[in-house]
Amino acid sequence: MVKPIATLRSASGVPTGRLALWWVIASEIVIFGGLLGSYLLHRLGHPEWSTYASHTNTWAGAFNTLVLLTSSLSAVLGHKAAEAGDGKKAAKMLMFTCLGGLTFLVVKGFEWTYEIQHGYTITANGFWSFYYTAAGLHGLHVIAGCIIMLFVAADARKNKELQRVELIGIYWHFVDLVWIFLFPLLYIAK
């Protein structure tokens, strides 16, 4: 059986596929870090932003945090199943993770609709600009993760390319990590 190149080349001691993913995550840290760092600076410099933040829905944010934490659990259980060679179970877990991502996006959709209808648009002020930019960029990562996960799950179901289950899982945990910090910054600090 021919092994995938992503698991064979490992001059650094880390299989190529996983090494590439860590580089992606390293660059994402700088992207989200710069954005959240800028937000934090402005937030500390503008105490009045807490008034705007009081209009975000803490319960919707908390529910979405629970959804992402649960989807992270299913992602890591999928990885565990892939390690054991159980492609079908791994695919099932990835589909469950994907469902979590979809739930997250639906809740976000309702939340944004409510806020936009009440005049809290991206151009209302600096706080809402950061709110939509940060949550929107994160949402794009959720969408990308879900799409990739569907492809990985389709292969995993046939017991193919099981190493990718771990890779998409690590990416998903990172998306979860970003939300762990977005939640207190945008929803709790009021």
Partner: peptide, 14 residues
């Protein structure tokens, strides 16, 4: 293509 039982995770995991 990888086989089902092929190790592909962290080598030192166990």
């Amino acid at each position: 293509m990888s086989s089902a039982a092929e190790p592909h995770g962290h080598e030192t995991e166990a």
